[in-house]
Every structure is written in C-alpha cells, then in structure tokens.
Design a binder for these strands. Structure first.
Lengths: 229, 229
DNA sequence: GTCTATATAATGATAGAC
DNA sequence: GTCTATCATTATATAGAC
C-alpha cells in the first residue's frame, strides 16, 4: 500500500490534504501551494478556498498525520503491551515505525515533522516516549530488558536514538520513493540491524568506570543541574 | 568564543560569508539573500556580486564549515588518537562535537547540513565515520571497548546515533541562542549523559537471543542483501 | 464548489552610477 | 568595491464569474 486511502471516495478537501502530505514528503515543507494544487489536479485558488491559507493546509496535514499515527500505534500496541514482541530493540519504537511505514508517506512525513521541531513534533515524540516507557517497564518486569536508573530519561533517549538514526539514514541514503515507507524501513533495518542489536545486547564499553562516574554525579544531583561539560 | 573570527581583519567577502553562516544557523537554509545582506550590513547586490548566486554563497558556506570542522577535529584527535579520553561514549564523536561547539555556530550548521543530506553532508559524515572507526579500533586494542562483528557498520551506527540524538534534542529543546554551540552542547550532555552512558555500558537487553538470531543471518549473508523485514 | 484573473509581496538576479 | 534602482519570477492570497 503506497497511499493513505484510495483516491476515490474522498471529498475534494480530503484529496487535496492527502496530495499535500505526499508533496510535502517528496519536496519538503517548503513545497508551494501551486505544487500541491498541481498534484491534486485542482486550481491553486481552490486549495486556499478550502484551507484559508498555506499555514492552514499545513496544520491540517500535521493533524491528519498525527491522527493516523496515533490510531495505528494504538492498534498495534494493543490494550496493554505488544504480545508479538520477539526481543527486537525497543519494542514500542520498532512497532511504531513499522506501523507508520505501512501507510506509505507517513514515515518520512514524521521524520520531517520531528526534525523541524515545534508543537506537533513534541506532541508526537512525547506520545511515543510514553509508549516506550510503558513497554520498557513491562519488558523489565518480564526480565528481558535491564532496569534503568532513570526510566523516563531512558525512554526519551531510546526514542531520540531511533528517530535520529532513521533521519541520518534517510539523509545519507535518499530513498528512490520517499512515499514508500515499507521499502524505506526495510533498507533501514538492513543497514542498522547488526550494530543496533549488538549495541542493545552488550553496549559498547568493557568496564563500568564511566557509568560509575556519571551515576555518582547523578545521585548527588538528580536535577541534572550540575552536569559535566 | 561565540563567533568564528573577530569581525574586523576580514575581507568583506569573508565577512559576508560568516554572516551568512550565522543567518543560516538562526533561520535555516531557506534564509534569503536579503537577510544575509542585512546581517552583514551590506547591500543585497554586493552579496550576489561576490558569490555570483545564492547557491554560490551557500556552497562557500558549506565549504568553509567543512574546512573548519576538518582542521578542528584533526587538531583534537591529534596524530594518532585522543590521549585525553576519559572513557566517554564514542571518543571521536564526542571530541568532534565538543570541538565544533567551541566555534559557535558550527555545531548547529552541521546538524542542518547533515539533516538536509547531499554531498557536503556525506563528506562530513564519511570523514567522521572514518575517525570513529579509527578511535574504536584503538579502544578495542586498549581493551576499553568491546570488539564488534562489523567495525565499519558499528562506526556508521555510532555516528548516526550521536548526530541523530543531537538533532532530535535540538528539535525538542530549541536553544535560546543557536550560535552558542558551547551552551547547546552543555545542555545536550546534561540531558543525555545518564541514559547514554548506561546504554553504552550495559546495553538494553538481558539475553543474547536477539543478537544470536541477527548474527546467524549476518554470518550466512554478509552482504546484508537478505535482511529481516 | 471550482475556476480564471488579478492584487500584492517577496524573492534572486541584473545594470549602471559612483 | 559598493551602492541604488530595477527587472523578472514566483509566492500567497483575493475577487468575482460560472
């Protein structure tokens, strides 16, 4: 499946919105209203007529993408946690990316959204962090994942890692079709699976001196106010 | 030090270029020639006169940033490897980021450059990957870092991780002054030090079944052609 | 709802005076 | 080298016909 919905059976307004999402994925958020109109095969004026302004169109696209990603991850992660987990790195993140990839352009749209920052980005990331924290907690309880001295911070770090590595991978290996999330994720996993799993299993360092030093500071100063620079 | 060079003692051409770097850091690469001219306190025409086109100016900025980052990391990493390493996560990456942060706007410029992709981005990342691979090899020889089944892939992954986490951190926590690399890095380290060191020391997982499974595929198919999806 | 035509602003780039 | 003035293009957005 390469598009969000079949082009028919949608209001023109929805068709323009979906066309805009695809154009934003292909050309970036700097794409013009004209480019969107051309892709939706309508006049530029009609785009503005439906969304009042370019910013309005953009906001609607963001909202749509967040809504789609929300319902998809809710479905995948189920009522409690994911039962089909096979010990992958970072359950909730992996499952969320997989889920986003299934609906074509969502994956790249999200990476652009997150990179740009702003409120929509924070909404998405915060939600994902919460999911990851939950899935980590149950994985810790199940004994498959080590506990952390700071579970919320680890969840944040895991999300930043996963999204960040994906963003760099996309920048270094531009996909032939940015709207084909499945193919993108497939290549991405191929390129990163070995080092990612290795890192998740054993870490990098042989000793604990670095961690001991960091934890000493962290215990005495949990607010992180007096960090190392 | 918050700027690249004292504003005096530079040719106008160099002043415009440095002003452009700062404007690109503050407003993104979509900043106009006029905005650059205003910041350099010259006319828009003069900018074009010196750099022929907007693309020419941008290319010169990229080249300048790459040159600066190159000479800085060469200096920091020294003839062989970094002797002042204190067991931080990813020697060469950490030292490179620290070095970039010292010259004000470089840090954020690099993150924008890498995110955008393209040739300059690949040049920078490839060079950094090579540095990391070298520093990892000697850390492995010294016994402080575990060996990897695929050192080049691990080096790539470590670079993607470090830059990626920084990019997400910047997007989620926009710095008050994007040209103050030192402050940005300080905050970044404060937010990520604990989970990053924890992860680098112990990884995430308690068992090796995931790694075993991945390595089984990797051994039989080193090209990565037949990856898991 | 949808279009064409247009107003208005901003952009990159040029020409020529000094 | 540097400026002012201007052109050509493109952008968003509006007005009004159908």
């Amino acid at each position: 499946m390469s598009s969000i919905q079949p082009a028919s059976d949608l209001t023109t307004r929805a068709r323009i919105r979906d066309a805009a999402i695809e154009v934003f994925v292909r050309e970036g958020f700097s794409a013009s209203v004209r480019a969107v109109a051309a892709h939706a095969v309508v006049s530029p004026g009609l785009v503005i007529h439906h969304f009042a302004s370019r910013a309005g169109l953009r906001a609607e696209c963001d909202a749509r993408v967040l809504e789609l990603s929300r319902s998809r991850t809710d479905h995948v992660l189920g009522t409690d946690q994911n039962p089909s987990s096979t010990g992958d790195v970072g359950d909730a993140v992996t499952e969320t990316l997989r889920s986003l990839a299934e609906s074509g352009p969502l994956l790249v749209y999200i990476t652009r959204l997150v990179t740009e920052g702003g409120e929509s980005a924070r909404t998405f990331v915060d939600h994902l962090v919460r999911d990851v924290e939950t899935s980590m907690m149950s994985a810790v309880a199940a004994g498959t994942v080590r506990p952390s001295v700071d579970e919320p911070a680890r969840a944040r770090y895991l999300v930043a890692m996963s999204l960040g590595v994906l963003i760099i991978d996309l920048a270094m290996n531009p996909p032939p079709d940015p709207t084909d999330g499945a193919a993108i994720l497939h290549e991405y996993v191929n390129r990163t699976m070995v080092p990612a799993t290795e890192y998740a299993t054993h870490g990098l360092l042989t000793g604990t001196s670095a961690l001991d030093a960091v934890l000493a500071v962290h215990q005495g100063d949990p607010s992180g106010e007096n960090g190392v620079d």
